[in-house]
Amino acid sequence: MVRVPTVLIADDTASIRFLIRTNLELAGFDVREAVDGLDCVERLRASADADDLPDVVTVDVMMPRQDGVSTVHTIRADERLRHLGIVMVSTQNLPADIQRGLDAGVDAYVTKPFDPDHLVSTVNDVIQRRSQA
Results as ranks from 00 to 15, higher is better:
65 R>I: 07
65 R>D: 08
66 Q>W: 08
68 G>E: 00
69 V>N: 09
70 S>H: 05
71 T>H: 01
71 T>M: 06
72 V>G: 01
73 H>Q: 14
73 H>T: 13
73 H>F: 13
73 H>V: 12
73 H>C: 14
74 T>F: 10
74 T>C: 11
74 T>E: 15
75 I>M: 00
75 I>F: 01
75 I>G: 02
76 R>D: 02
76 R>V: 06
77 A>V: 08
78 D>T: 09
78 D>M: 04
79 E>Y: 11
80 R>T: 09
80 R>K: 08
81 L>C: 01
81 L>M: 01
82 R>Q: 10
82 R>V: 03
83 H>G: 10
84 L>M: 06
85 G>I: 05
85 G>M: 04
86 I>P: 01
86 I>W: 02
87 V>K: 03
87 V>P: 05
88 M>K: 04
88 M>C: 14
89 V>H: 01
89 V>N: 09
90 S>N: 03
90 S>V: 04
91 T>E: 07
92 Q>D: 08
92 Q>P: 00
92 Q>M: 15
92 Q>C: 07
93 N>D: 10
93 N>L: 04
94 L>R: 13
94 L>V: 11
95 P>D: 13
95 P>L: 14
96 A>S: 15
97 D>R: 10
97 D>H: 15
97 D>G: 12
97 D>W: 11
98 I>A: 04
99 Q>R: 13
99 Q>G: 03
99 Q>F: 11
99 Q>N: 10
99 Q>L: 14
101 G>H: 08
101 G>Q: 07
102 L>I: 13
102 L>F: 09
102 L>R: 14
103 D>Y: 01
103 D>L: 10
103 D>C: 03
103 D>T: 10
103 D>Q: 10
104 A>H: 03
104 A>E: 03
106 V>R: 09
107 D>E: 06
107 D>W: 04
108 A>M: 05
108 A>G: 07
110 V>R: 05
110 V>T: 03
112 K>Y: 07
113 P>E: 08
113 P>T: 06
114 F>G: 06
114 F>I: 08
114 F>K: 06
115 D>N: 15
115 D>E: 15
115 D>F: 05
116 P>E: 11
116 P>G: 13
117 D>S: 12
117 D>P: 03
118 H>F: 06
118 H>T: 09
118 H>M: 11
118 H>N: 03
119 L>E: 03
119 L>K: 01
119 L>I: 09
119 L>D: 01
119 L>G: 02
120 V>T: 13
121 S>Y: 07
122 T>Q: 02
122 T>I: 00
122 T>M: 00
122 T>D: 00
122 T>R: 02
122 T>W: 01
123 V>A: 00
123 V>E: 00
123 V>C: 00
123 V>R: 00
124 N>Y: 02
124 N>V: 09
125 D>E: 04
125 D>G: 14
128 Q>A: 15
128 Q>L: 10
128 Q>T: 12
128 Q>S: 14
129 R>N: 13
129 R>Y: 11
130 R>N: 15
131 S>K: 11
131 S>N: 13
132 Q>F: 02
